[in-house]
Design a protein around this nucleic acid. Structure first.
Lengths: 214, 214, 214, 214
DNA sequence: TATGAATGAGAGTTCATTCAT
DNA sequence: GATGAATGAACTCTCATTCAT
């Protein structure tokens, strides 16, 4: 069931094994329903070792959140090329995002479902990551407005709402894509780009957003 | 602290008191962290009575989900007038939605945060409600396409994605509006309508969606 | 092993049973080595009931200390007649003290050994009782001085030391009497009265303190 | 924090460092609350080394008791000059005793508080030391009686009680002196000499014991 | 001589749940 | 219709102790 029992590993390696087991368990069972016993067994170690290295259930969960948040933002960042048009950056970012969430469903569940529902301390950890992403999207929207040679005539705080809506839609689509068979990351990204960039009104007039060739 | 202790109430009334207490407790503490003790005390009854009426913690939580889901869909339904244009229906529905989630934050937390994070059985309960809403939105999109005298040239399954994106964005905005001071239900609805109907591309060209007067 | 299992007792009765078991266990094993499991079993109840009524191990121990301290001071107080000469009052008090400690060795161990060695919070509980006794003895010494028509020519703070010495000697003798077979409470009291009242110097000169007839 | 980490020390030195750390930890935390981890860290060595040298927690504690008991009796013995009058010997012994307990509060706590509250095995270790002291005091009393040219007319076992009372009073005064600011070892000794030698009755008659000049 | 890696066993505590009245 | 009394089971966490090097 658990990992193969390999004895006497250096601490750093063991810690990663524990975090792997913890992310999987927290993601599937939920923070409270996950027991330290189960995590330890899945990691192939004894419970005291988990406590020795990770300190407490709360600290372990926090470590999971941080690791997964870092992995997700790193994935998105490395998928985007800075000096490309705004819509291209968004398209690349979304594909990286949906690809990562599809490949790490447990990590995504930890971030999106578990961390936000078990206390402010944990929620604050994800909020930090989320704000980074929202800021990235906000800046893309502003860049697009500049590219259209226009100062946006809607107020700053309205842009915050738009970015929030886009990010929220992406988060929901990630869950949806994970739950719906045969929906690829690329399709999810295309759907959202159309929705966000062209808008339903334009889509009705057959004026969709066209993905770049890559 | 809890409800005023009135003895010998009819069962239906007592049950509602219990559900009130349970929704509040589940919404604030989370499903697992909420204790039957706390719920019973908040409801002003003894624990055995809770079990007599609601049977178990799981059943109690399920009853909460159903009641709140029903209340939310009823609120949205009663906000929409069937024989109006699609964008008007969406606008009315969104306003009803954001109004309800703002007025019942605990119920919304139960549906959006708690029910989805504690096992498939509970998640399935919300999924039923969610599918109803997604179906409503899907039908609005199709109606809009018909109104534009066009068969949508993107496949059925693409529409599902669009509806999903819209609903997901709405859910996220509900959390955002609840957490951000001074954001009204109307503002949240306007932001989302602009985003969804006009799209970011059009917004850049100063071609926003215009809310109806009401 | 434990008490006969009698079901459904009123809370007050069960609490006393639990305190009985706790005093015995704490007194014999020590505070830390005593397990809540053992106490519960000895009391003939399940562990959760102990927690329901007494809250925590710390609270349970505190409750033990208070009950035993109260019992001991009550025993001493009721053994002394206020309007008798100082040496008679001391003699009566010591007999009551040694009688009580001999009859409640576990309670005495809780007060004298355990409560003072496991943290300031517990120690403070006994200190309160001890100070009451020291104050009583101090006042006896002053009364004796007045009876000898003399203002004591040693300073206040010296009297504190004398009272402390007398009480400390009594405490040690209580342990000694409990540990030494065939030493009665009366003998212990007589030894200490001779030592304290007449002093070793006088005893050498065959001038002991003579116990009253009673 | 702990001792400076110096590698490869001779065994005897390392052992003393460990005992220093152990006495301090046992004295402050108590036997059970003291953890081998803390002791090892305070000693500046790894835990396995503690086990290699001292074998087990019980053995380590026993070693502490023996070392501190030896140190205390040695201090008292070296303070007393054999061929002096009994009261002078007692006076010198008490001063040495109070001086040592004031200078080694952790060691005194180990002997007086901890060793007696955690099982007969440990208690027996202190009992050995205590009996040595009681025997010394008993012999002083007998010497005083002989000096008064009288065979004491109270039985052997009464003398045991007197010695016990004196030693018990000294032990209590040691705690009291440590806990009361500005009480010197000399003052504690004087208080106890007055109390023991002259007795309260004589003190009332202004016939105290007079300390020798030194 | 010395230690980083690891654990079996058991502690205090809490909870959903039921019985007897 | 309603409750005070009671518990089995599980949880987080800690500790003395050892192995392999």
């Amino acid at each position: 069931m658990g990992a193969v029992k390999t004895k006497r590993m250096p601490r750093a390696v063991r810690e990663q094994q524990m975090l792997d087991a913890a992310v999987r368990t927290f993601g599937r069972r939920g923070y409270m329903a996950a027991s330290m016993d189960e995590i330890a067994e899945l990691a192939g170690v004894s419970k005291p070792l988990v406590y020795l290295y990770l300190n407490s259930k709360e600290d372990l969960f926090t470590a999971c959140i941080r690791r997964e948040a870092h992995a997700l933002t790193a994935a998105v960042r490395s998928g985007v090329q800075p000096d490309t048009p705004a819509d291209r950056q968004l398209w690349d970012g979304l594909r990286a995002f949906f690809t990562h969430t599809a490949q790490h469903p447990d990590g995504w569940a930890v971030l999106h479902l578990q961390a936000r529902t078990h206390g402010d301390a944990f929620a604050a950890e994800v909020t930090a990551m989320r704000e980074e992403i929202v800021a990235f999207v906000t800046q893309l929207i502003l860049a697009a407005a500049r590219a259209a040679h226009r100062d946006p005539d809607f107020p700053e705080h309205e842009i915050a709402g738009l970015a929030e809506a886009l990010v929220g839609a992406a988060e929901s689509l990630a869950d949806w894509a994970n739950a719906t068979p045969d929906v690829t990351a690329r399709q999810a990204a295309a759907t959202l780009m159309n929705f966000a960039w062209a808008g339903l009104g334009n889509l009705m007039n057959s004026d969709p957003w066209i993905p770049p060739v890559s």
